[in-house]
């Protein structure tokens, strides 16, 4: 899932300082699961923001809140559309994709981010999320026994470990596992150590973000006759 983290109330207050009617929009998908922008968090931010504005002498500013099922899909934004005209700004607590989806859907309404989108990750333990995927567009997990050196090795080394691996930890931080130690241990357990003998060529980064925003098109799923631009 996409993992996000909350923004400071002061930062959000500063972003909306020129607006009088603000709608906080939560998202019921990834950010609900990572406890950053779901219904409860929108309620908390709503309360906090209203109090902060009142204390700053801006009692007249209206801050309302709503949470929709998913912000990154236009069909789900339909439920929100009739209300947006009542507000002069939106603060979205979805990931960066959700914020931009709202911005595209409502060209005349400023949209501000209410959270900091962090990474694609997993729930490691209750309340702890860790990054697992860099979305490089050219998955090589099969070569590294299911452990991604791009995401989990500080040097992103394809042929590791480096000299900074100490007792299974990374030299960058003693709290970080050395990805290459993990790869080695898992390969050994799977009896696949010989596969690590081969020198792995560099990743083809043409599939990465450097070429601009990426697009996935499934012609067979596109509406007939309209193509990917429907």
């Amino acid at each position: 899932m996409i993992v996000a983290d909350r923004k400071n109330v002061r930062e959000i207050r500063a972003m909306i300082q020129n607006h009088q009617r603000v709608l906080l929009v939560g998202c019921g998908t990834c950010v609900t699961v990572c406890l950053a922008g779901g219904e409860r968090e929108v309620g908390i931010l709503g309360s906090a923001l209203r109090m902060a504005l009142r204390l700053a002498g801006r009692d007249q500013v209206i801050v309302d809140q709503v949470t929709i099922e998913r912000q990154c899909e236009d069909a789900f934004i339909d439920a929100l559309a009739p209300r947006v005209g009542e507000y002069d700004a939106i603060c979205s607590l979805a990931c960066g994709a959700g914020v931009q989806a709202l911005a595209e859907r409502f060209p005349n309404t400023p949209v501000y981010p209410g959270v900091n989108t962090q990474f694609i990750g997993i729930l490691e333990s209750q309340g702890v999320w860790t990054e697992k995927c860099a979305a490089c567009g050219n998955c090589r997990l099969g070569q590294f026994v299911g452990i991604c050196p791009i995401t989990r090795c500080a040097k992103r080394q394809f042929n590791g470990p480096c000299g900074g691996s100490r007792d299974g930890r990374c030299e960058v931080s003693p709290e970080l596992d050395c990805a290459w130690q993990l790869i080695y241990d898992r390969a050994k357990a799977l009896n696949k150590l010989d596969e690590l003998e081969a020198v792995v060529p560099p990743l083809d980064w043409s599939t990465g973000l450097d070429g601009g925003p990426r697009k996935v098109v499934r012609e067979d799923q596109c509406i007939a006759g309209l193509g990917p631009n429907a």
Binding site: N8, V9, I44, A48, M51, A52, L55, A56
Partner: peptide, 8 residues
């Protein structure tokens, strides 16, 4: 933490 950020 929220109260501190709010100014209360």
């Amino acid at each position: 933490v929220f109260l501190e950020e709010i100014g209360l």
